[in-house]
Amino acid sequence: MERVSNSAQQNAPATQGCTDAQGKLPSCAPLANPYVPYQSERPDAYNPAKGIVRGTMYPGLDLPFMGMVNQSELSNTLMHQIQSLSFATTELGLYLDTHADDDEALDLFNRYRELYGELMAEYEAKRGPLTMQQAGANGSYDWVNDPWPWEYKANDKEG
């Protein structure tokens, strides 16, 4: 299958001289077309703990309203680590959807995905299933056990 993201990026001139918050645009472009600068490959990235509180892994896309930014990172519970890694893989996955040839991002995606799997397994062994597929793995059907994610106490407990 032809890789389109690469050719799409090649339509634009090279990014030399662009900062991390800038992207590629063609110098001459057909009229009556919408354009958003294409994010350059190998962009700077936050670590997952910072990325999740900022709402993006990419400093170049971190564009807060009236300077309102989340300053403090989440506490270092197992659940918060899982949420951070899950967020990092989601964000990197979206990036890779349009940047399939960025090997550095793919390596990072694989690293976070692996770590995420390990922490999921640790959490499920200690505290119960996070997916129905894992229900019963601890010897009883504990899938329905409280708390459910939308409840205050699910987010309050030190997990």
Binding site: V4, S5, A8, Q9, N11, A12, N33, P34, Y35, V36, P37, Y38, Q39, I52, V53, R54, G55, T56, Y58, L61, D62, L63, P64, F65, M68, V69, N70, E91, L94, Y95, D97, T98, H99
Partner: peptide
């Protein structure tokens, strides 16, 4: 603030999707 920032990132990806389409 988290949810708002996701809108910014999604806008970027849809913009890149237009480029892939083009």
């Amino acid at each position: 603030k988290f949810l708002r920032e996701r809108e910014v990132v999604h806008f970027q990806r849809f913009g890149e999707a237009v480029e892939i389409l083009r």
